[in-house]
Design a protein around this nucleic acid. Sequence first.
DNA 1: AAGATAGCCCTAACCGTTAGCTTTTCACAA
DNA 2: TTGTGAAAAGCTAACGGTTAGGGCTATCTT
Lengths: 191, 191
Amino acid sequence: MIEPPGRRERKKAATRQKIADTALHLFLERGYDAVGIRDVAAEADVAVTTVFAHFASKEALVFERDQDFEQRLTRAVTDRPPHEPLIPALHREVQAQVRHCTAEGSAPVRRMIEGSPALQEYEESMSLRHAQALAAALAADPHLSRSATACRATARFAIDAYALGCRADDPGATVDEVFRMIEAAWEATAP
Amino acid sequence: MIEPPGRRERKKAATRQKIADTALHLFLERGYDAVGIRDVAAEADVAVTTVFAHFASKEALVFERDQDFEQRLTRAVTDRPPHEPLIPALHREVQAQVRHCTAEGSAPVRRMIEGSPALQEYEESMSLRHAQALAAALAADPHLSRSATACRATARFAIDAYALGCRADDPGATVDEVFRMIEAAWEATAP
DNA sequence: AAGATAGCCCTAACCGTTAGCTTTTCACAA
DNA sequence: TTGTGAAAAGCTAACGGTTAGGGCTATCTT
């Protein structure tokens, strides 16, 4: 969040942001399917190829904060105080992320995602990547001597908790309930 | 698996099968990305529009047995002997499906899927549908008085077990281990 | 036998995405 | 300052999955 890197990088970041903002604005205004990449490019006043230089696909325009999510999740594991138990740390982070994605302002975006199979599919595949990153973080933790399978399963379960929480009527209670299950599953793998 | 329905339906089924067979054959021979829908249509001697009349997308050509999987899974729950505990029934079925998908003959197909992001993404989104169907079956079972959240979570966990099993070095042991975790998670939700 | 309809065909296009190449802008050293 | 290399952005044209529109024939129904 610091400023100084050269003008070039600042301009690049600005272009990226302008594209993302324009896209989201158009999508919410006219609907995801009704807006083409060419529309986004024209409105953001850039070339179509520039859009794809910053975002790998049309769907990626909607999930701009993707990387953040993955980082926060893995850091919740790797940066937790030594000897702090794993599951509560994970629980807390997932709870926070769910709150973020069910917050007031995010409602129209969520509605848009639910309304587009392409976006849902993309979100799923993101989840898979996140689960893999999380599994790697778990496997690398020296305090947790669990099998690779246990790590992978727990990672997927945690992502499931997030996914269920985002779509639930009572997100907070849902995440709590699922994490009670995850806690039990994790304990069952104790060496 | 019975024959008699009229000629029209039989011809339709034959066309569908011919398209699927041709497609799989070409994909394995030349690679998924190197074969276009137009190639498949030409080789199967049908129009491109006919391909899409039978399959919703190019990826769907690879997962022809999709519906079977979902049916078997939900039936493992709904058709199990009364009072038979849920988790072992689910465990047995997932184990069987994993064996089926890691069998000798399926290796080239799996390699093809692993090699194509588009196919993996599609498989993920199928999994989501299967998890939803399974969750509905769990929620509908009168013998299991669990919360909707517990049903949804357990369904996703079971699908996770399948996904992990298909990709593991030792599929059988992996599924067993994950189901030990699921059993514990399920017990933790007992009313 | 006549009408209704499902299955299939063809053409033309839409849209996301990429390749190939040129132009502009910036960073940095001579 | 200026020259140079590289990153960023642009343009055009195309590729490949997918769909709309409209027509033809075989099958089903009555």
